[in-house]
């Protein structure tokens, strides 16, 4: 229950951190909030030989909110900072709604958005939100920078597209269209536990209340976030009805492949996912109509 020995280096700048990662590659891990990495190190499931602490780097922290353009969130921004950002909450109600579901206040005081996305836990909320919000992720190495869509970033359980010399530095969120309502819901055995199933739903209406776009992304029911937005094609060009919501939920249930666990069988996870989908879509639709 104690970490194996490693060499600790506190990076003094982004360039310093990237140079260290380039030098040490897979042997090294970035230490962000540490709320996932430290438990795995305590259990010795992870045994990095070099730990590059990036907590002292201000360049990759903070929220840059734009009224018209994309909003940029530094990868080292802690959940607590996001939770306390009223403007961010107003711009992205989905984030405001999901944050209290993430672990506990003590964990959110340390945990970071970027660290969470790079850990890529299948049951984690933020990867699903990043996909639902069509986030773009800025990836940097000491020699290159590139952008990747969140939907292409997650490759499997605890697996991302990050290369050994790379760091996720910025999460960019495009602005939501007008008359977009969203809702995040999850069911967990205990408050703060990983979800048996969770869903992020978004609905965009035109002036006649006709659906012109919808998003539906699950967490906890597959190896990575499951984008079941195609199920919402049923809504397109229609005024959303209760029956259509039930039909979309039934379709979505067939698009997920939950693994089941001691806490919940796969059938139960699928059932919960269906119920949550109906509720979340109903709420998102209501919010879109009410202009929330």
């Amino acid at each position: 229950m104690k970490p194996a020995p490693f060499k600790y280096i506190a990076a003094t700048s982004l360039a310093h951190a990237l140079a260290l990662k380039s030098e040490h590659g897979d042997e090294a891990k970035f230490l962000a909030g540490g709320q996932s990495l430290m438990p795995t190190m305590n259990f010795r499931l992870a045994r990095p030989t070099v730990l590059i602490d990036i907590n002292g780097i201000d360049e990759v922290s903070g929220v840059d909110l734009s009224e018209t353009g994309p909003t940029c969130i530094g990868a080292m921004t802690r959940y607590r900072t996001l939770e306390r950002d009223a403007r961010l909450a107003a711009a992205f109600p989905l984030i405001r709604e999901a944050l209290p579901e993430i672990a506990h206040p003590q964990i959110r005081n340390r945990g970071t958005l970027g660290g969470n996305l790079c850990h890529a836990d299948p049951a984690s909320e933020m990867p699903a939100l990043a996909v639902a919000l069509r986030a773009r992720l800025k990836i940097q190495s000491s020699t290159q920078r590139r952008w990747i869509a969140a939907s292409d970033f997650f490759l499997g359980a605890l697996t991302t597209d990050l290369q050994p010399d790379e760091m996720l530095t910025t999460i960019e969120l495009p602005p939501l269209g007008p008359r977009t309502g969203s809702c995040f819901m999850e069911i967990a055995r205990r408050r703060g536990d990983f979800a048996i199933a969770g869903v992020a739903a978004m609905v965009t209406l035109d002036d006649d209340d006709t659906c012109i776009g919808a998003r539906l992304v699950f967490c906890g029911v597959g190896e990575m976030p499951v984008d079941a937005s195609d199920a919402t094609d049923l809504f397109k060009g229609e005024a959303i009805s209760d029956k259509a919501i039930r039909d979309v939920a039934a379709l979505a249930q067939n698009m997920i492949d939950p693994g089941g666990s001691v806490h919940a069988s796969a059938d139960y996870q699928r059932h919960v996912a269906g119920v949550l989908t109906e509720r979340a879509l109903t709420t998102a639709h209501q919010r879109a109509r009410d202009g929330q």
Binding site: L31, G34, Q35, M38, N42, N55, P105, Q106, I107, R110
Partner: peptide, 11 residues
């Protein structure tokens, strides 16, 4: 409040 088991002393 933070978990002291999830932080290194050096941090």
């Amino acid at each position: 409040p933070v978990r002291s088991c999830l932080m290194l002393a050096v941090q």
